[in-house]
Amino acid sequence: MPLMPGSAPYQHEGGQVGVLLCHGFTGTPQSLRPWAEHLAAAGLTVSLPRLPGHGTTWQEMSHTRWEDWYAELEHAFESLAGRCAEVFVMGLSLGGCMALRLAEVHGPSVRGLVVVNPSIVNDVWLLKLAPLLKFVVPSVPGVANDIKKEGAVELGYTRTPVRAAATLPRLWSLVRSELHLITQPVLVYHSPEDHVVKPHSVRLLRRTLGDNLEVRECPDSYHVATLDNDAERIFEGSLEFIRTHASVPLQRD
Rank of each mutant, 00 (worst) to 15 (best):
L92I: 10
I147M: 00
R163F: 03
V136Y: 08
G43A: 03
S93I: 01
G96Y: 10
D220T: 09
I234D: 02
V202P: 00
A42M: 04
P2A: 09
L21R: 11
G53S: 06
D228V: 01
H245I: 04
L179T: 01
V140L: 06
V196Y: 03
V224I: 12
Q184S: 15
R33L: 11
L181N: 14
W58A: 04
L205V: 04
A246G: 09
T64Y: 05
S247F: 11
G210L: 10
A152Y: 04
Q30L: 12
H23E: 09
T244H: 13
S247K: 10
R207W: 14
R170Q: 14
L94A: 11
A36N: 08
C22M: 14
V114T: 13
P108M: 05
W35C: 03
A165G: 14
L171M: 13
R83Y: 07
E78H: 14
D228I: 00
F25N: 09
T158K: 15
G151M: 03
G53R: 01
G107I: 08
A144K: 12
F241K: 01
G107A: 10
T28K: 06
M98F: 12
L213C: 11
Y70M: 11
L187T: 01
K149Q: 14
T26H: 12
P29F: 06
V143Q: 11
S47F: 00
V105I: 15
A225G: 02
G82V: 09
I242H: 00
W125V: 13
T45V: 07
R159G: 08
G107K: 04
G210I: 07
G24I: 00
D211G: 13
G55V: 07
H200G: 14
Y222D: 09
T183H: 14
L155Y: 01
G24E: 02
M90E: 13
E86I: 07
I147T: 01
Q184K: 11
A246N: 13
S119I: 12
V121Q: 08
T64D: 10
H245Y: 08
L239Q: 03
L204E: 05
H180G: 13
S247Y: 12
D230G: 05
G237T: 06
S139Q: 11
V175T: 05
A85E: 14
P108N: 07
G91L: 05
S109R: 15
R111C: 06
D230V: 02
A225F: 00
M61W: 04
R243K: 13
A225T: 05
T158E: 15
P141S: 01
D230W: 01
V137W: 09
W69S: 05
C97L: 12
K134E: 10
S7G: 10
G18S: 04
L155N: 06
V124M: 13
V188L: 07
L21H: 10
R243L: 12
R170L: 14
I242G: 08
W172F: 15
L179V: 04
G112I: 03
V137H: 12
L20H: 03
H180K: 10
R101W: 12
G91C: 08
N145L: 02
R176N: 09
C22T: 15
T208R: 14
